[in-house]
Design a protein around this nucleic acid. Structure first.
Length: 209
DNA sequence: AAAGAGTCCAACCGCGACCAG
DNA sequence: CCTGGTCGCGGTTGGACTCTT
């Protein structure tokens, strides 16, 4: 299974044909090595932002969105691909319990992994596993966990606050509100030692029953 | 060996948020 | 404040690959 990544590197001529036929000359479908190279070169010069500019400067017939996706999921340095370890798998399951389908947040806790990869891995492997497990342990009473509840409540309130106020503070600069709350920071466990992380384990284990 | 079913993953799509002018 | 451009996210799709019959 892991080997077919390398097989996929070769671009199927049929795919190429399809690519070229779509949307007024815009390339779609699988990326070629040539396109990858051009994109990487452009990003080296302009940095990983202004994707529309990058797309045109690189001479790629791709939209900025597509370039960004390719970079984020494939070309970015330090990307780990395939072979998700048991530890990583366990972490994904736990984080998914806490965060739901917040793939980018989950990916942020797994260095080198992309949200797309985790989402795919979840959909193809873990969701089934978890469903089976849940079926087995059905009937587990809901138990309290003050810390996670507090966190969830805080998130809810902030979200409600935001929608209520809209963009009332001109510019809406981050951090200038009374409730300077950053979801990403909120779930940033990177500075917590393993002991502190125990609350996640305990919480998720409680759910397992 | 061939056909059909199932699996996996790269890429696309639509939407909402953000931001500069 | 409004508007258009851009970005990022999550859901979905298409097709290559693998397994089963």
């Amino acid at each position: 299974m892991d080997d077919h990544e390398s097989v996929k590197e070769e671009v199927n001529p049929a795919v190429m044909l399809k690519n070229q036929s779509a949307e007024k000359g815009a390339n779609r479908g699988s990326w070629t090595d040539e396109e990858d190279r051009k994109l990487a070169e452009a990003i080296e010069i302009y940095g990983p932002k202004r994707w529309k500019t990058i797309a045109s400067k690189a001479g790629l017939k791709r939209c900025g969105k597509s370039c960004r996706l390719r970079w984020m999921n494939y070309l970015r340095p330090n990307i780990k691909r395939g072979n998700i370890s048991d530890q990583e798998e366990d972490l994904i399951v736990r984080l998914h319990k806490l965060l739901g389908n917040r793939w980018s947040l989950i990916a942020g806790r797994l260095p080198g992994r992309t949200d797309n990869e985790i989402k795919n891995y979840w959909n193809s492997h873990l969701s089934k596993k978890v469903h089976q497990k849940e079926k087995q342990s059905k009937g587990t009473a809901e138990m309290g966990c003050s810390r996670i509840r507090k966190k969830r409540k805080a998130m809810k309130e902030v979200k409600a606050d935001r929608t209520r106020e809209g963009n009332s503070s001109s510019g809406g600069a981050p951090g200038d509100s009374k409730l300077s709350f950053d979801v990403d920071d909120f779930f940033d466990f990177s500075n917590e030692d393993p002991m502190t992380l125990e609350w996640i384990s305990k919480f998720t284990e409680m759910d397992d029953g």
